[in-house]
């Protein structure tokens, strides 16, 4: 088995999701390479080379990969695929955008969002918003996989010394042009890797009230998330969304505030170790998954909670 991980990175450094993906890849086989496709990305390549257990880093540093457009990166992976039994990426928006395109070009099925590795060909993955776990065996020669990062522990980030091999770019397809990004600025920890997450729902009533959650999150060194209802209502940006089609989180502590607990929201947080729900509706479905439920008006409860942490 020979595995190629497609790193999540921003050219300067590798993102945490890559470390979880490395843990998953190591369960598929013991020859693991990492691809850094970017532009001016030697920093990310050096970080990847320091990961323990990595055989070599493939560095594709070329202008057409600057924004990691799937149209340009997919042909590179097709060139490299012959040397590998598994192509593996985290199930981030990047990985989910890229890997099915690669799979179709290789005429294989992709295996999305795996939650466990049974053996080199067999994988567990959640379906129906995580209400059902399926185990599937792939009969394709090349496995093209995305990994649910919350289901695999992060690998160590230092201690290794893999070689870095430069590879040529595959050219710009000219199909898509990057025009810009609007990234949410926050001092808080990143949502998918935070140990504590404080999430608000429709009960927050407006975006300004999320300042209250920021204050609580500050005391807990927590990330702030939201339900789909709060994002749809425009209270907070889309990248706050926790749920079936948003982000999947599994922190040590998840605090759901003013969230009713729709199936698609539970799909994104029910693997959290401890769940707290604060809601004034005692019938809210969120209480069925909460370890600790507090039936109380959130506008009374949250300031008291914040004050109690002083």
């Amino acid at each position: 088995m020979s595995i190629l991980i497609i790193a999540e990175h921003d050219n300067a450094e590798i993102k945490g999701a890559t470390l979880n993906t490395l843990t998953a890849a190591a369960k598929m086989g013991d020859s693991v390479d990492i691809l850094i496709a970017g532009s001016g990305c030697s920093g990310a390549a050096e970080a990847a080379a320091a990961l323990p257990g990595v055989r070599s880093v493939k560095l594709a540093d070329s202008a057409e990969y600057a924004n990691q457009l799937a149209e340009n990166v997919a042909p590179l992976l097709v060139q490299l695929a012959g040397d590998y039994s598994h192509l593996v990426a985290p199930a981030t928006t990047n990985g989910k955008n890229l890997m099915p395109r690669v799979a179709a070009l290789l005429d294989v099925m992709a295996i999305s969002d795996i939650s466990d590795v049974v053996d080199a060909d067999t994988f567990e993955r959640p379906i129906y918003a995580g209400n059902v776990l399926s185990v599937i065996k792939s009969n394709d020669a090349t496995k093209v996989i995305t990994v649910r990062t919350t289901k695999f522990a992060a690998a160590e980030a230092a201690g290794g010394s893999a070689s870095i091999d430069s590879i040529d770019g595959s050219g710009d397809t000219g199909l898509a042009t990057f025009e810009g990004q609007d990234l949410t600025q926050s001092d808080r920890p990143e949502l998918t890797s935070a140990k504590v997450v404080v999430s608000g729902g429709r009960g927050m009533q407006n975006g300004d009230n999320f300042a209250m959650l920021d204050e609580l999150a500050g005391k807990l060194n927590a990330a702030v998330g939201a339900s789909r209802a709060a994002v749809d209502a425009g209270f907070v940006p889309n990248d706050y969304q926790v749920g079936q089609t948003g982000k999947v989180v599994a922190p040590d502590l998840y605090i759901a505030i003013g969230i009713s607990g729709a199936i698609q929201h539970l799909a994104g947080m029910k693997d959290s170790k401890t769940i707290v729900a604060i809601n004034n509706d005692e019938e809210a479905p969120i209480f069925q998954v909460a370890d600790y439920g507090l039936v109380m008006d959130l506008f009374d409860a949250v300031p008291q909670f914040t004050a109690a942490l002083d």
């Binding site: 294989v108 099925m109 295996i111 049974v118 067999t122 959640p126 379906i127 995580g130 209400n131 059902v132 776990l133 399926s134 185990v135 599937i136 065996k137 792939s138 009969n139 394709d140 029910k270 769940i275 005692e282 209480f287 998954v289 909460a290 370890d291 600790y292 439920g293 507090l294 039936v295 109380m296 409860a301 008291q304 909670f305 109690a308």
Partner: peptide, 22 residues
């Protein structure tokens, strides 16, 4: 291209408790 080996429902979370105050 894939064979379904099994489907199952994940174990439900153990019931929690209600607390009376912050």
């Amino acid at each position: 291209r894939q064979t379904l080996v099994s489907v199952s429902e994940p174990p439900p979370r153990a019931a929690g408790v209600k607390v009376a105050s912050v």
